[in-house]
Simulated assay, not measured.
Amino acid sequence: MNIKKAYIFVFIILLIDQISKVYVKTNFILNEHIDVFGKEENAWFKILFVENEGMAWGAQIPGDYGKLFLTIFRIFAVGGISWWLYDSIRKGLSNYLIIAITLILAGAIGNIIDSVFYGVLFNDSNSQVATIFSNEPYGTWFHGEVVDMFYFPIIKDALMPEWVPFIGGKPFTFFNAIFNVADIAISTGFGILIVFNKRCFKEA
């Protein structure tokens, strides 16, 4: 894969990611959901609109500057990943590696766009459907919330076995993460690196 094809791939993933996020943001109230292929308990999955600070499972860095630090860190990380992609293509390394890096890069940029711009592009989604280019934005530059929407609760309201330390006997849901297209790209990229490790790091 050459650099042009790699960045076209990145652009396509970003386009899908941002279209899906803007659609959900401008058509759903926060925590609103629709069932897909079935209803309620029988649904295959849900489109559930949530927002988070930009870390897995809604984790966040505490403090007034935690969100800003996370966003800036991600921007620097994207710079490093971009160089890794360019250098890997220049050296003619494995296409497995290049595809994995491309997916990770696209996903990282996708969530950075939310963090950098969404706070000033949209108004609040609480109790209302947000509008884009609002005169009353909900945040500031670099303080936007990441939009997530895909929810696959495969096992719901089950009890953790008693022998499991700390959480034994407590109810749990699997899979309880809510994610977006960018997250899928990142996870797939890392999955390729793990599953096809030998092929990824073998010179073409």
Score class of each variant (00 low, 15 high):
Y96H: 11
I101V: 13
G139R: 10
I101T: 13
Y96P: 00
S134E: 07
E53I: 02
S125R: 04
H33E: 14
G107P: 05
L103V: 04
E41A: 14
F142K: 02
Y65K: 04
F49M: 09
A100V: 03
T140Y: 09
I132E: 05
D124A: 14
T131K: 08
H143R: 14
N135A: 12
A56E: 09
I89A: 02
S115Q: 09
E32V: 01
M55H: 06
W57S: 10
W83C: 07
T131F: 02
R74N: 15
F69Y: 10
F28I: 00
N135M: 08
G92Q: 01
L105N: 11
F49E: 03
N27Q: 11
I98T: 09
F117D: 07
I109R: 08
Y23S: 13
I132S: 11
G92E: 04
V36N: 04
F122I: 07
S94P: 05
P137E: 13
F45D: 03
E40L: 10
Y86D: 07
N27M: 06
I29P: 02
H33S: 14
L93V: 00
F37P: 01
A59W: 11
H33T: 09
K67F: 05
L121I: 06
T26R: 06
V78D: 12
A130R: 03
K25E: 03
P62V: 03
L70M: 14
G139H: 08
N111K: 09
G63R: 00
I99E: 02
P137C: 12
P62M: 05
I47A: 04
V120F: 04
K46S: 04
G92L: 00
A59F: 14
E41D: 15
K25C: 02
E136S: 13
V116Y: 11
D124T: 14
L121W: 12
D87M: 02
W44P: 01
M55A: 15
L70Q: 12
V22T: 14
I104E: 09
M55Y: 05
N52D: 11
N31C: 01
H33M: 06
T71E: 12
K67H: 13
G139F: 03
A59E: 11
L121N: 07
Y86Q: 10
I98N: 07
L105R: 08
Y138L: 05
I81N: 09
I113T: 08
I109N: 14
S88D: 02
P137H: 10
L103D: 05
V116N: 12
S82V: 10
G139I: 02
N31E: 12
R90G: 02
Y138C: 05
Y118S: 13
L68G: 07
T131D: 09
A56C: 06
F37A: 13
W84N: 05
A130S: 15
I75P: 02
M55E: 08
Y65V: 03
G119A: 11
T102G: 15
L93M: 13
N95H: 08
Y96N: 07
K91L: 11
K46T: 01
V120N: 06
I104R: 08
F49A: 06
